[in-house]
């Protein structure tokens, strides 16, 4: 049986009178890639923050790497969090620290990961070279472009070799070329370091790329795992969030076959055609 890395059991979150998440059930197994699609405010970001216990749910249980983190104290969470990498929507880079200090931050501050300074520098340099930004060590975040800051964020999220990587809208607001580069790096991290990945995005292309492309060391680029027109089986699941609920959970093929007016908009970028006969449409939780 596959090992569950992250589990949401009937998780709800309420901010004052607003129900932000409504009884979400989700299991991410080791090696899985989960793509969270959804409109702004549909609950993607809070789902990722709940996964690291940066916010507490109003009800339900969350299990991360085998620990029930729902009621843990902040001090007890640090060790568990050290096995998870996260890229925040706003980047979350510390603007008063250099890129080297930003990427090295978890290695200097997480008890479990503390290492001699030379080793930290080596790992930071490696991680920055992984995102092709090895030359930016002494720069500050404000000196980098938006795309470069995201790449630094990816380097920082993955410098600890996490078991689970969470990416919150990594391509939001970027041009298509930079967005492609960012997604390539996420696929590279997933494939080379075998990291379980949860990716929140509103761009279907990002999900399609994670589902069908893999890293090729020979060409040093991502390549399609299967020919065009076919669906690869890279353990990728799609979740479509709508107003705090899971509106769809299934594979890419099922997502593309869905005739749900909300769900299909993420694939088609327009309202769906008239409902035709047949086709597995994924399951719609009650």
């Amino acid at each position: 049986m596959a090992e569950a890395i992250l589990q949401f059991e009937d998780v709800s979150l309420r901010f004052e009178d607003n129900l932000v998440l409504d009884r979400v059930n989700l299991t991410v197994n080791r090696g899985d890639t989960f793509i969270l699609l959804g409109a702004a405010g549909s609950g993607k970001t809070v789902l990722l923050k709940l996964a690291m216990s940066l916010i507490q749910p109003s009800s339900g249980r969350i299990r991360l790497l085998g620990h029930d983190i729902t009621d843990l104290k902040e001090s007890e969470l640090f060790e568990i969090r050290s096995e998870v990498g996260i890229l925040f929507q706003e980047g979350g880079l510390f603007d008063s620290l250099t890129i080297e200090e930003n990427v090295g931050y978890p290695l200097r501050n997480q008890k479990r990961l503390r290492a001699p300074e030379e080793e930290i520098l080596t790992r930071v340099t490696e991680s920055l070279e992984f995102v092709e930004l090895g030359h930016t060590l002494d720069k500050f975040p404000s000196e980098l472009s938006g795309g470069m800051r995201r790449r630094v964020g990816i380097a920082r999220a993955n410098v600890t070799n996490p078991k689970l990587s969470l990416y919150d809208s990594p391509t939001a607001g970027l041009d298509p070329i930079t967005a492609h580069t960012i997604m390539s790096l996420i696929v590279k991290q997933r494939d080379l370091r075998k990291t379980t990945t949860v990716l929140a995005t509103h761009r279907y292309q990002d999900g399609a790329m994670a589902a069908n492309y893999q890293w090729d060391e020979a060409t040093h680029d991502v390549v399609r795992a299967v020919p065009h027109g076919q669906y690869a089986s890279l353990n990728t699941s799609f979740v479509v969030m709508k107003e705090g609920k899971i509106a769809f959970l299934g594979e890419q093929q099922q997502l593309e076959a869905s005739r749900d007016p909300y769900v299909s908009q993420f694939v088609l970028h327009q309202p769906p055609p008239r409902i035709g006969p047949g086709g597995d449409r994924g399951h719609l939780p009650a």
């Binding site: 969090r81 880079l93 603007d95 008890k111």
Partner: peptide, 11 residues
């Protein structure tokens, strides 16, 4: 800018 969340996430 989520730096406080990042701080918590990073130990």
């Amino acid at each position: 800018t989520e730096q406080i969340d990042a701080m918590r996430a990073l130990g």
